[in-house]
Structure formats: C-alpha cells, structure tokens
C-alpha cells in the first residue's frame, strides 16, 4: 500500500503543464468567455432578479451574499470539467498520455500535470469572476487579493477528486453521475445560495465535509473583509484534503493507464 503510493515525480511535470498551456493559448478567448458567462447568468438571475425578493442575509443584500460564493463554485466547476472530460478525452481518445509516457516523462508526472492544469483553470476562471464582481463594486476588502491563492489550492483538490472518479469509473458516461451526484449537491448545499445556519445541525456537520463549503467561507470572508482565525482552519482543511487526494489520484491513474 505504501509502496503503491510512492510517486515518480520530477520537474518534468512542468513540461506536461506547458503542453496544456500551449494548447490552451490557441483557444483561450472562446473558452474563457464561455466559462465566465455561466456564473454571470447566476449573478444576474439570482442576484439582481431573485435578490429583489430576498431579505437581507447577515446584513448583506442577496447579490453581495452570492457574488463571492460564485467565485468558489466556478473554481470547482472548471477543474471538475477539466479533470473529467478533458483528462478523459486526452487519455482515451487522443492517446496523449501514451505519447508522453513514451518519452522520459513518467505517468505520475502526466497525472500531476493534469491536476496542476485543473488547478490553473480554477485559478483562471475564479479570478475572472473576482474581477467582474470587483467591477460591479461588490468587493469590499483588499483581503480579496488572497482569493487567487485559495483558488489554486481548491483547484488542486477538485482536480484530484475528479481524477479519482476517472480512476474508479473510467467511462465517459459516468461523468454525468459525477456531476449530478457529487458536484451539483456540493454546489447547492455548501452555502453558495443560502447560509447553512438555518439548517438542522446534521446538515451543517455534513456541510463541513464539503470542500466547496470551506472554499465559499474563504472567498466570502476575503471578499467581504470578514476575516478571522476560522478562515485559517478552512484553508488548512483544503490543504490537508488536497494533499491526501493527490497521491490517491496519481496512484489510480497509474493503475488505469500502465498495464
């Protein structure tokens, strides 16, 4: 078990990352505009539309409440998409992994490169949303400058989580289930749309197990300037869970590809 988790990683992992970056440079305009379109729709429909009918939450207007959380959820979605569909297409249809593994790059570096890439996507799309809400005047504190750091760490976590799913159920049709059974429930019950304090205690403790819950705490706290030690705990939670999930993802991918 221990030896199975031993990893073969060198600086070549950045060559894998660079390959993804080179490819992305050719299409970033389209993909970036599509990716921040969706959170903007939520912001418009819920913040400006529904928000009119919602009373102040913890002293905030509804749009002030959800805007920072949408940074967190778009970070989750972007790495989850990248490290399910994106990774799977490269692995299964384009055989990109097979090509890389025939060079001095190891499979573990390929997998970690995918995770870093997923994390970068979270960072990128989350930051775009942050910028948009800044322009809309919804950023209240310079603490928001730390949001990109949170995005990188949460990106690592969601990327690894998604690749674990591939490792366990390597089938493109199964990703529907991943999104409807894992990602959407996280999206709905992690405090993005409503505070969890009104829910039964059992639900609140379940939420503690949701990575998105901690990311939302962080982005909301930092954007609104409501900082404190509790945010350090949220951050540590993310770091520890990411550190546990990454080697598992790498191990499962190695088992899947190298046979």
């Amino acid at each position: 078990m221990i030896s199975a988790l031993r990893m073969d990683i060198s600086a070549r992992v950045f060559k894998v990352f660079r390959r993804h970056l080179t490819v992305y440079r050719r299409s970033w305009k389209v993909s970036l505009s599509f990716n921040f379109f969706e959170p903007l729709l939520y912001l418009a429909a819920l913040g400006y539309g529904l928000g009119v009918y919602v009373q102040a939450i913890e002293g905030l207007t509804y749009i002030q409440f959800i805007a920072p959380a949408l940074i967190a959820s778009s970070a989750m979605f972007s790495s989850a998409y990248e490290c399910t569909y994106g990774t799977y297409i490269r692995m299964e249809f384009q055989k990109t992994f097979q090509a890389m593994v025939a060079t001095p790059v190891s499979m573990d570096e390929v997998s970690l490169g995918e995770i870093l890439w997923g994390s970068y996507k979270s960072f990128l799309y989350g930051s775009v949303i942050l910028f948009v809400i800044l322009v809309l005047g919804l950023v209240a504190s310079p603490w928001a400058l730390l949001v990109p750091v949170v995005l990188l760490v949460s990106g690592l976590l969601f990327a690894a989580m998604s690749m674990i799913w591939i490792g366990l159920i390597p089938n493109i049709d199964s990703f529907n289930y991943y999104f409807s059974l894992v990602i959407t429930p996280l999206f709905l019950f992690s405090g993005v749309f409503f505070p969890l304090s009104g829910l039964p205690a059992i639900v609140q403790s379940l939420a503690w197990a949701s990575p998105l819950f901690h990311v939302v705490n962080l982005t909301r706290g930092l954007v609104l300037g409501d900082v404190g030690v509790h945010l350090v705990w949220d951050f540590l939670w993310l770091v520890v869970v990411a550190a546990v999930l990454i080697p598992i993802a790498i191990h499962l991918m190695r088992r899947l590809v190298i046979r």
Binding site: V16, R18, R19, V23, R26, Q94, T103
Partner: peptide, 19 residues
C-alpha cells in the same frame, strides 16, 4: 497519438520539451 490540439511543427517542439 499525435497531439491533435497542436499544429505539425508544434507537435515536434512540444514533444522535444519532454526530453
């Protein structure tokens, strides 16, 4: 398993990067 996302020359250059 050429990289379909890259052009011909880029395929060689990116691959060279792995070495």
């Amino acid at each position: 398993n050429l990289d379909l996302d890259l052009k011909v020359l880029q395929n060689l250059l990116v691959y060279a990067g792995f070495f």
